[in-house]
């Protein structure tokens, strides 16, 4: 697994003891360049999941089942003032296209579907199955 060129350093500049800090600025939780959050695994994918906000009921099954921490979440308040997570997208740098999220999505017409990697999001949304065609 090749390291991106900009991360390749020489013996006199490598991390002491191979110890890696998670954060560059721990106070602000600013992730360091060593955080795998900054590594891209997108090229593992053949198909990608596409998220359809229109259909989503925010059950968060996809969030809890994704092994790659891909789901982008916004914290919102529900009617009773309790905080809850709203799914707002997928981090395609981290998604490996396993399809688990699609599998667990419970809406009658899935709010997540797999499409060939090079399908544009708009195009995918246009192709979304309807009630009679799911």
């Amino acid at each position: 697994m090749a390291t991106p060129k900009e991360m390749m350093s020489t013996w006199d500049k490598i991390q002491f003891g191979a110890i890696l800090p998670s954060f560059e600025n721990p106070e602000k939780k600013l992730k360091s360049k060593f955080n795998s959050f900054n590594y891209k695994v997108a090229d593992w994918r053949v198909e990608k999941p596409v998220f359809n906000r229109e259909l989503c009921i925010d059950c968060d099954f996809c969030w809890v089942s994704c092994p790659d921490s891909c789901f982008l979440v916004e914290e919102v308040e529900n009617k009773r003032g309790k905080k809850q997570a709203k799914i707002v997208g997928i981090n395609y740098d981290l998604c490996k296209g396993c399809g688990v999220c699609v599998d667990v999505c419970p809406t009658p017409i899935k709010s997540l579907l797999m499409f060939p990697e090079f399908t544009e999001i708009d195009e995918a949304l246009n192709q979304w199955p309807t009630k009679d065609n799911k």
């Binding site: 003891g17 191979a18 110890i19 890696l20 800090p21 998670s22 954060f23 721990p26 106070e27 060593f34």
Partner: peptide, 9 residues
């Protein structure tokens, strides 16, 4: 723990 480190990569 405020400045987490990964040992043993």
């Amino acid at each position: 723990t405020k400045n987490p480190q990964t040992y043993g990569a």
